[in-house]
Design a protein around this nucleic acid. Structure first.
Lengths: 217, 217
DNA sequence: AGCATTAATATGTCTATACATATTTAATGG
DNA sequence: CCATTAAATATGTATAGACATATTAATGCT
């Protein structure tokens, strides 16, 4: 275990035990460096992860204090559907439902299956001016989702999570039990402010949830 | 603008322009340091944010490469209800509905209002062994949500986001339009593996969504 | 050829030092 | 007494160098 890890562990202990209560200032970096017998850089490395996690707040000249835990950040990774399914030990299936081009936008409707049951309905729009190669892409075997990741990167992603009553396509393709809502993931991506693609991912509420865990020790 | 910021900007440009395409290795830290005329530490600082954002992948000895953008990380901050409401320029209201103690667990049901309309129903369980002071707390004016943040910190938080049909309490208190589902936030917190509290936050789907944005330039 | 061992190497950790900069605190002056 | 200015200071940025370590590539052996 590295020095900065040991130090971070000890600092976390002091916070959790309230030796350093919420709102209190902690010793300066130089003092901590002296206490632990390391260089200031090592202390800064230990502190940085605690700051990122929202446990500490730093301000120039004012020093470092234990933050109020009002809005801890959780990191959310929404990965490829296929990987989501296969990681759970299930079999993945894919079906293209609709595919059209209108006004320079390619619109694709397709279904992702988990163990042959509907798992995610993907309703996607792709800008052909933003991604010209999308005009000729074949989505009968590979999903737009997956195809797009092979393409150029994006510089801005906007994601919205929502609950919703199913729309017509959802009811038609997701085999929803009566009164079952859908969990929506809406996402839009840009490259240098040029719009690339927009997608509406709908899932049966009973078979989909987003989980986050923030552990600290 | 600092050196590492300029460098990060230039590196981002090379990635976005596909001068460094996805999957390709980028020059070694020493080479970059020479190219930009800075110390390696400065290069590492520029790279670190790109690695955190998922744009680059580093591996010892193998070097640094442009990552496949399969699962970019988005940071999600779920903050205090009251702040959520007030930040949007709305008025916040609070109402305690139920409050009981059983088997060493205090259970509180309360409602958070936005502009006098139901916004979030909070159904909370607090471990009195984990947080003894919760036995005497007064939740008639201040919500458990808010009260708990003044208390001891936690070391592990588990959050689940879900869509769901409303349960009995939801229907009773959230004034849901017909067929409207709820958006659930389920959260459980621990301190060093000791269970502290569990909460079920339900929201009318039409008035609640979680938004994330990952910009990069 | 195939396998185990060894060497090479790019990133990771750490130190020590210098200066920059945002903020606060103190000093100054009307 | 208040407002403005100046000093103090804790964190932020940057440098240069040393060594550690994971992983790959080369080597040698059977």
């Amino acid at each position: 275990m590295h020095k900065y890890e040991k130090i971070r562990l000890e600092l976390t202990r002091r916070i959790n035990s309230q030796a350093w209560p919420v709102g209190a200032s902690i010793p300066h970096e130089d003092e901590l460096a002296a206490e632990f017998g390391v260089a200031r850089g090592t202390i800064r490395q230990a502190l940085s992860s605690l700051v990122d996690a929202g446990y500490l707040e730093k301000k120039r000249r004012a020093g470092t204090r234990v933050a109020y835990p009002k809005d801890h950040a959780s990191t959310l990774r929404i990965s490829l559907v296929r990987e989501q399914v296969e990681q759970g030990g299930h079999t993945y299936g894919y079906r293209l439902l609709k595919d059209s081009i209108e006004d320079g936008i390619r619109r694709v409707l397709c279904l992702h299956l988990r163990d042959d049951a509907p798992y995610q309905l993907e309703d996607r729009e792709i800008s052909l001016s933003g991604i010209p190669s999308a005009a000729a892409a074949d989505f009968s075997q590979i999903s737009p989702n997956e195809w797009l990741l092979q393409q150029q990167p994006y510089s801005r992603v906007q994601t919205t999570l929502q609950a919703s009553a199913p729309n017509r396509n959802d009811r038609k393709h997701l085999e929803l039990p009566r009164d079952e809502p859908v969990f929506l993931v809406l996402r839009e991506t840009f490259l240098e402010e040029v719009w690339l693609t927009r997608v509406r991912l709908s899932h049966p509420a009973s078979s989909y949830s987003v989980q986050m865990e923030r552990a600290f020790d």
